[in-house]
């Protein structure tokens, strides 16, 4: 029986879709059978991040309205044959699908897949309710900014109220140079405020922009973000993976300066 994981954040633009693409691809690289579902009906994102936008025939709404079978709507990934995408519809809105329908769909996919990843839309309305309906666990993505952290706290409360079993935190786009200068909250600060368990810290990495441009998730690559995403995947599988040292190799003067800052 597969596990359903919802990737959510509350605030938009913090990296839910990028996280879904990279975690999903990473789990597939680790040999798991994975399906990614774009639950943001009306706004398609995940297909372009995955580089699969040209292959869409049917979508999520077609599946729940029985216009096609699930298998017909699933798009096989370019690189990993055990990775699939169920794209969202562009012509409908969030009310086209109900939480009950999403739960039923998730339960059917459980039979076939090891992991079902739900890319949740921003906000706490119908789209959010749809995305969390069938979920066993949640990954809450935030950046170390006041607005994103505050929204994450709301989302964590709602996940608790909806009895989602496990909720883990991903701190995204961390800039170690700014943390060092005292101008960005550290992942420890964010964890302290939100009081949930951390499952990953992803550094701000320009390679992410390049990977998204190319439509190829960078998980597993030698880049810092690529390594951080792969670590998250291994932690999802239950492994105890130490956290990356995100500090760049420091020159003598920088190290000297940081001693004085303490």
């Amino acid at each position: 029986m597969g596990e359903v994981i919802v990737i959510t954040s509350g605030k938009g633009g913090v990296g839910k879709t990028t996280t879904t693409a990279n975690v999903g691809t990473g789990l597939a690289m680790l040999g798991k059978k994975v399906v990614l579902i774009d639950t943001d009906i009306g706004l398609r994102n995940l297909d372009v991040v995955m580089g699969l936008e040209n292959r869409i025939v049917y979508n999520l709404v077609d599946v729940v309205e029985n216009n096609c079978r699930i298998k017909q709507a699933l798009i096989k990934d370019k690189r990993y044959p055990n990775l699939y995408l169920l794209p969202s519809a562009q012509t409908k809105d969030k009310t086209a699908v109900t939480p009950e329908q999403m739960k039923k769909l998730a339960d059917e996919l459980r039979e076939e897949f090891d992991y079902i990843l739900m890319d949740c839309p921003a906000g706490i309305e119908q789209g959010f309710k749809n995305a969390i309906a069938g979920a066993d666990r949640a990954l809450v993505v935030t950046t170390p900014e006041v607005s994103a952290v505050r929204d994450a706290d709301r989302i964590i409360g709602l996940l608790e109220a909806n009895e989602i079993g496990q909720t883990h935190l991903i701190v995204n786009r961390l800039r170690t140079d700014m943390v060092r200068e005292g101008n960005m909250m550290s992942s420890d600060d964010v964890v302290e405020i939100l009081a949930i368990d951390l499952i990953g810290v992803v550094p701000d990495d320009e390679q992410i922009v390049i990977a998204t441009n190319n439509g190829e998730p960078l998980v597993g690559s030698e880049s810092k973000a690529g390594k951080a995403y792969m670590n998250i995947c291994n932690r999802i599988l239950g492994e105890d993976v130490p956290y990356l040292d995100l500090e760049e190799t420091q020159g003598f003067f920088k190290r000297f300066a940081s001693i004085f800052k303490k």
């Binding site: 900014e145 952290v149 943390v179 200068e181 600060d189 302290e192």
Partner: peptide, 18 residues
């Protein structure tokens, strides 16, 4: 520094949100 300001503001805001 500004990260401490952020942290303290968040703690207050979140407490009343909760």
């Amino acid at each position: 520094n500004s990260s401490d300001v952020a942290k303290n503001r968040l703690k207050v805001a979140i407490t009343s949100d909760r």
